[in-house]
Every structure is written in structure tokens, then in C-alpha cells.
Design a protein around this nucleic acid. Sequence first.
DNA 1: GGCTAACTCGCGATATATCGTGTTCCTGGA
DNA 2: TCCAGGAACACGATATATCGCGAGTTAGCC
Lengths: 205, 205
Amino acid sequence: MTPVFAHGNLRLYLLSLLAESPRHGYELIQALSERFGGTYSPSAGTIYPRLSKLEAEGLVTKTSDGRKTVYEITDAGRAELAARESELGAIEDEVTDSVRRLADEVRAGVNEAMRSLRADLASAAREAKRGRPADREHTSDVHPTPRQDSNAAVRDAEVVLNDFRQQMRTDLRSRAARGGLQDAVVAQLRHELAQVRANVLGTLK
Amino acid sequence: MTPVFAHGNLRLYLLSLLAESPRHGYELIQALSERFGGTYSPSAGTIYPRLSKLEAEGLVTKTSDGRKTVYEITDAGRAELAARESELGAIEDEVTDSVRRLADEVRAGVNEAMRSLRADLASAAREAKRGRPADREHTSDVHPTPRQDSNAAVRDAEVVLNDFRQQMRTDLRSRAARGGLQDAVVAQLRHELAQVRANVLGTLK
DNA sequence: GGCTAACTCGCGATATATCGTGTTCCTGGA
DNA sequence: TCCAGGAACACGATATATCGCGAGTTAGCC
């Protein structure tokens, strides 16, 4: 993965941010993210080691303040910054370019497309292990293209089933909370659901 | 945003993971992510408070080991888990459903589409300024108040509901796999379930 | 029995820090 | 002058912990 900041550039950029005002680490991450339209969010693993280094070099000072750690630029830091101010504009342009390229890659990426498929696979694996009849419906689908079109009906059915279960649960629970829930009701539910299943199975045949 | 784990479910699920083997917090996050096909990755802010709570309740123990903090289930934890083992299957299914729905939303989402645009806007602004250029499963409370009696029926009902859902799902999916599942069947299912609910509600009154 | 105030919970956001990998840069010796 | 080895660097992954919001649940009062 091509880094957004080239060798030494982040160091200088952090210094320029701290020249505006003292900040703590997380604020610097946010500031960077904001400056590049939310597209680039440097990870903590990028920022904190750099800040430690800057401190070791005497360009910033660290002040612990409760949960936060405020960093402040020193005179030496300001001097360093002044000496290399001309580089800053170029750095910003470079970063903007990198970030734009990254965004394009993400947009074209297939990354997100397989998520629901993977969820199905995981659940199928789990069901198989539990000894239930595994429903391997999607496992043969090699293509990342989601099966939602061909299976819209199945999906609808799942929503129907799930909603029903949620509602019944709420009903029964609130009933149990005030008064008791008789076993007879549960028996009735069991019976009626068995009936529903038989009916649907009949239609399918 | 609808939570993936319903009220109290994460607590139980974490316990079940720790029953398999002691783990540290980050491992639990990974384990959860793995179980749901990488689709659901609980944040640290979800896991650590829950672990602290479990520790305060005496269901797990915390052992600091260098950079890591290993959590281990206690006998009390195992007891709690055993008492509610029947709920685990339902929880897994629920989570799978939630996650699938979430994935569908993301897939349909426009989120990523504006990124590079925003990067452009941010850079333009900068140049201008530069002057030129699930439901509720719950129940086991924090306080070990034994009231299993009123809950036994609810538990039974939950098992009934879950089994039904599981079976119907398998039925419908295998049907969809060989031939098509007509919308009419889904409509029928919806209708019949509404009827069942009305009947049960009638009995409750 | 009904209502609501208090409490619990899931979770993203906030906050910090280290480690390992792959790359780039720089320096001293051939 | 060239180039090899090491230092410096950017960064994702690893690791932990707290805060506050919104939604769900319960307990207690009437």
C-alpha cells in the first residue's frame, strides 16, 4: 500500500498543525482527517510514534492532562518549521493527490460486495457444526455478485419470519411481566406454528 | 443504527467464548469477527466495558500479562452459562440476521461515492484560504434474583419460536434452491403468521 | 394494574500506546 | 562514485480503556 505521506512529510505536517495551536494526539488525527475531506484518517500507529520522536528531538513538548496528552511546539520546532516552510504547499498537494487515488481505488473495489455472502457462509458452517441440516444454498456461488435478485423471495421470507418472532417475543414477554404466562399458551403457539408449516409445505408441493 | 446484539445478548455470548478458552479483549473481538464472517467487528468500546462488568459480577477473572489482559471464566460464570445455554442458538441466528441486513444496507449505500469529491472540495478550500492556489433476550440480571418460574414459559416460547423459524427457513431455502420460491408463498406465510399472532393475543386477553 | 424514573446495555467516538512490515533515505567504505 | 547496510519512516495491526447517546428493561410508587 502506497503511503499517503512520503518519507518525512508527516513529521513536518504535524509540526505545522501544532504551530497553529497545541493539540493532543487524537485531535491531530481529526485535524488531518478534516483537512483532507475525511478521506484520509491516519491511524494512531502513525501519529503517536511520530509525536514521541518529535518530543525526543525537542521540537515539541508533551503535557499530560488527565486522559489526554497535549503536545505543544517549541521554539526549536518553530525554527525547523520556518526553515522548511516552502515544502508545505507541495506536501499538501501531494497528499491530496494520493488521497484521491486511494478513494478511487476504494470506490472501484469489490471489498464490500461479499459481506453478506460471508455472513451466510459463517452461519452455514455454524449450523453444520451444530448438527443441523446445513443449508448450503450460497456456497456454490463463486461470483461476488450478490444473489439477492434471484433470492429476493427468500430474503422477504426471512424478514417475515424474523419480524414475527420479534413481535411474538415482545407480546409474550410483556404478558409474562404482568401476570403469568401459562404453559397452555405456549402449547397453543407450538401447535399453530406446526399447522402453519404444514400449510406452507402443502402449498410448496 | 440497530445494534447487532440485543439487550444482554453480548454478555452471554462473551461468556460462551470464554468458556471455550481464556482470552484477552482483542482476541474476543477477533473471535466474534471470525464467527460472523468478518462482517461484524465489535468495537473495543463494546467489549471492554462488558468484560469489566462481568468481572465485577464475578463471572470472569482478569489477569494482567504484560501488554495483554487475559480474561478467564469462573465457576459462577460457567453456572450462569449452563442455565441459559438454550438461548445461545437463538442469539447466533439473530446476530447473523442483523449482520446480513447491515451488509445489505452498506452495499446499497452511497457512502463511499462522495469521498474523492470531498477531497477535492477540501483542497479547493485550502487553496482559497492560502490566498491563491434483536430483540430482547435479557433476563439474567446483575443481581442473582432467582425467578426462573415466571421465565420458564417464556424460555419455552422462545425455543418454540426459534425452532419454527429455523425449520421454515430450511424449508424455504431448499425450495428456492431447486425451482423458484413464489412471492405468493411468502405472502401466505405472512398472512398465516399474522393470524397466529392474533389468535395468541386473543387467548392472552 | 399502570406509569415513570432509574438503571442497564450495545456501541461508536474518544484517547493512547506498541509492534512488525515494507519502503525510503543516508552514510561510510570500496 | 557507487552501493550496501542500517537508520528512519509511514502505516496497519495489535492492545486497552473511558464517555455519552439512544434504546431497552426494571423496580417502585400510586
